[in-house]
Design a protein around this nucleic acid. Structure first.
Lengths: 293, 293
DNA sequence: AGCTAACTTAAGCCCCGGATTAACTTTATG
DNA sequence: CATAAAGTTAATCCGGGGCTTAAGTTAGCT
């Protein structure tokens, strides 16, 4: 992170991108146009790429420029938002708790089970946050975290829920077709889930390596979250890595079938973590979820 | 954004948070412990809040400290990732295209319709990206963007798909119960979708203001994406703002019902944007989707 | 072609951010 | 209680980031 350009270069660049004009950005920042011009130039030198196509007036962002402008806006916006949140720290009221877990787990495991919790605790409201860019964990406003891993977290109190396992899954019709034609995992069409923000899910590369399966091509259909991937695999578009937390319901219902002898234990499990001194609603939730399975 | 603390304060603070020790962070950053101590202090002064509880050794992060550490890590990580992407700009190969649209739209509108596209174009693969933190738009690796707004984007070629509208929706049983008891939108249990990263969705506040409905309490169940919110509303947990792009299928199927006379046009529509010179697969997709409705 | 707006380059200045050392304080442990 | 580890405070220094002015260049329009 020490290779980041100076903050002022980034904010000035983003202002130019936002206003679409170095002159306007300069006016807005109360500096000379020259300062803006040199700042953008310095940033380009720092990165080694042009951020603006100067063949037009006003200059247009290059693809690289667009990419960076968005990242700067979002990244620094996130920090600014955190600073605001810090200034507005306030507790939750009412019989509520907020659970953080991944999007796929929330969609296919937690949300379908919450009616059971509500039946036992009709006065408790469970808010769910599926973090966009990091693993769930306890933090201000997050009372409970459900996440997978090896359980060695130092925050709060952690209890294991179930062992995670993975097996390639496909729609029944596609599976029969592939197996009938003798197509193995070395050639079957794949459904990938890839995202720069979520590097913690093992992908096909790791699975195939663990199973010592060689494939000449890894290309397949790509999504950046398991909701869309699940929709695609249910639609018969290919074979997806079926995590127990995500695919077990569909497999139980027969909408998906597991690849024969494809199950693999990657040594991780799902855990629930609550604070050392949970609120009443959080304690009720923790008691329920640890008894559930 | 000009109220952001200096970058070095942020990166040093994050290093201390990451290492859990000012001494270790100092060693890692190749500076004296004193520099680290004064940097963290300067940052705390800048923000006006303690980031570390110094009653223990090593010091522990406060809640504010945890919040900021995560934001700094993610925010600056995003910028660092963009810088890496810029260095690794590469095109897609094969008969593929990548479509970017919001998570709810992908889940409830696009993915259910894609089988029709595949039927007409069996050799084309559609990857779908649901951006975590910003509105979909064209960018390196994104061939087509589907988004809502007023259509005034300067990039590529934009065609309108349909007008968006919003109406509160609820499960039939809950709706009947509420209406039967004479409960209006001023008191019905609400399902919110709120996220610091997605400020572009209108929420209940805006809807109620537009309808001139006064409510004493806005609290309700909160999620940070429409997938979980939709699951909750289907489960009868409350009334959700039902965007046409998200709720129309469920309403058509009878799983959800619209609030009587609740529909509201907020003046936005869904548009599809492709590059001025689309690839073959992208052109096929654009032709299909603009003909679809 | 002429003109204006928008931007770029070169040179120079200054101030503040970020570091140092030395002395001190506080926590943790035996 | 003594000691060591971890961190804090005060004072000082300096270099480079960020700005200025002046002169020059280029795109866009008439």
């Amino acid at each position: 992170m020490n290779r980041l350009p100076p903050l002022r270069l980034l904010t000035t660049f983003e202002a130019v991108a936002r206003h679409g004009s170095a002159r306007l950005a300069a006016a807005r920042l109360n500096v000379s146009a020259s300062a803006v011009s040199q700042t953008v130039k310095a940033l380009e030198d720092h990165i080694g790429t042009s951020l603006f196509d100067r063949g037009t007036r006003p200059a247009q962002l290059t693809e690289a420029g667009e990419l960076l402008a968005r990242a700067v806006r979002d990244g620094l916006g996130q920090i600014a938002a955190a600073l605001e949140d810090i200034r507005a720290l306030s507790g939750q009221d009412g019989a509520q708790l907020t659970v953080s877990c991944t999007l796929g787990m929330a969609t296919y495991w937690l949300m379908p089970r919450l009616p059971d919790f509500y039946a036992a605790h009709p006065d408790v409201t469970v808010n769910v946050q599926a973090p966009a860019t990091d693993l769930p964990h306890l933090s201000p406003g997050i009372d409970v975290a459900i996440r997978y891993g090896t359980g060695g977290w130092s925050e709060g109190t952690t209890v294991k829920l179930f062992d995670e396992s993975v097996c390639p899954v496909a729609a029944p019709q596609l599976l029969e077709s592939l197996l009938g034609k003798g197509v193995g995992l070395d050639a079957a069409p794949l459904i990938h889930v890839r995202s720069p923000h979520n590097q913690h899910w093992a992908g096909w590369e790791e699975y195939l390596r663990a199973r010592r399966i060689e494939r000449s091509r890894l290309s397949g259909q790509t999504f950046n979250n398991y909701v869309q991937a699940a929709q695609a695999v249910l639609d018969g578009r290919g074979v997806m890595l079926g995590w127990r937390s995500i695919a077990s319901g569909a497999v139980r219902e027969g909408a998906l079938r597991m690849w024969p002898d494809g199950e693999l234990d990657l040594g991780t499990s799902y855990y629930v973590t609550g604070p050392r001194r949970p609120s009443g609603p959080a304690q009720a939730f923790l008691d329920w979820i640890t008894a559930d399975e």
